[in-house]
Every structure is written in structure tokens, then in C-alpha cells.
């Protein structure tokens, strides 16, 4: 399972970066989305994949009984998804506005502020 996920993560990163290197604004944002999803999946994978019980302490017991899954990676991913949702939402609006003001979605036409 880890191997499959590793390949998927690699593919997500590769396609994400490839899309970001294109000249179009739309592809740039798709690339950003793929990249953040790759990162989320990476957290999921390196946080250990275990098939086990949910980490609830049973009634009457003091500690967890061993085979249990770590809930923290999911919590981190959930937070990261919410954040990247907000940020990407903003980026879509920004790029839309930029397209309206500049009149093109070609990044090569947007070099006025460089250097």
C-alpha cells in the first residue's frame, strides 16, 4: 500500500510542478491544487498506515489497548485541507481579477513588476 501511495504522491508532485511551469494562469492554479493534495497524501502515508481500532479508551480502562490507529495525521490533513481550500479559493478569485485587469492569462505578459 505504501508503495502505491508513494507512486501516487510522486505523480501528484510531478504533474503539479509541470502544470505550474506552464504559462497559463489556469494551469498554474491546477498545479497548486495538485501540489497541496500531494502534500496531504504524503502526511497520510508517512503518518503510518495501520489497519486497527479507532483510538478510543474503552469504558473502565485507563490507557489505549495496543492495535490502534493514530488519529493525528488525519487531523493535520483535515486542517490542511480547510486551509488550502481557503487559500485556493482566494487564488481563483485573484487570478480571475488579474485576468480581467491584464486582459490575458499568459504569464509571460505579466512581467511589468519584475526586476
Amino acid at each position: 500500500m505504501e508503495t502505491i501511495l508513494a507512486v501516487v504522491i510522486g505523480a501528484l508532485y510531478a504533474t503539479g510542478i509541470y502544470m505550474m511551469l506552464r504559462r497559463s494562469l489556469v494551469k498554474l492554479i491546477i498545479g497548486l491544487g495538485l501540489l497541496s493534495n500531494g502534500a496531504n497524501l504524503l502526511i497520510f502515508t508517512v503518518g503510518r498506515l495501520t489497519r486497527a481500532r479507532a483510538p478510543f479508551i474503552p469504558e473502565g480502562a485507563e490507557t489505549l489497548t495496543p492495535p490502534y490507529a493514530d488519529p493525528l495525521p488525519q487531523a493535520l490533513i483535515l486542517t490542511a485541507i480547510v486551509i488550502s481550500f481557503g487559500v485556493l479559493g482566494f487564488a481563483v478569485v485573484l487570478f480571475h481579477r488579474a485576468y480581467q485587469t491584464v486582459g490575458t492569462d499568459d504569464l509571460d505578459e505579466m512581467k511589468a513588476t519584475d526586476t
Binding site: 494562469l25 497541496s36 496531504n40 495525521p73 487564488a91 485573484l94 488579474a98 491584464v102 505579466m110
Partner: peptide, 23 residues
């Protein structure tokens, strides 16, 4: 707008790397 596109893109890139590193 033009400045912000570069700022937003590179900072999001950095955030994705940071997040992966944290993971």
C-alpha cells in the same frame, strides 16, 4: 495584480513544502 500572482504562487509553493516537511 501582477505582483500578487508571483507572491501568492511562491508562498503557496513554500507552504506546500512546509506542510510536507511537517508531515
Amino acid at each position: 495584480m501582477e505582483g500578487a500572482i508571483k507572491y501568492v504562487t511562491l508562498n503557496l509553493m513554500s507552504s506546500a513544502l512546509f506542510l510536507a516537511a511537517v508531515g
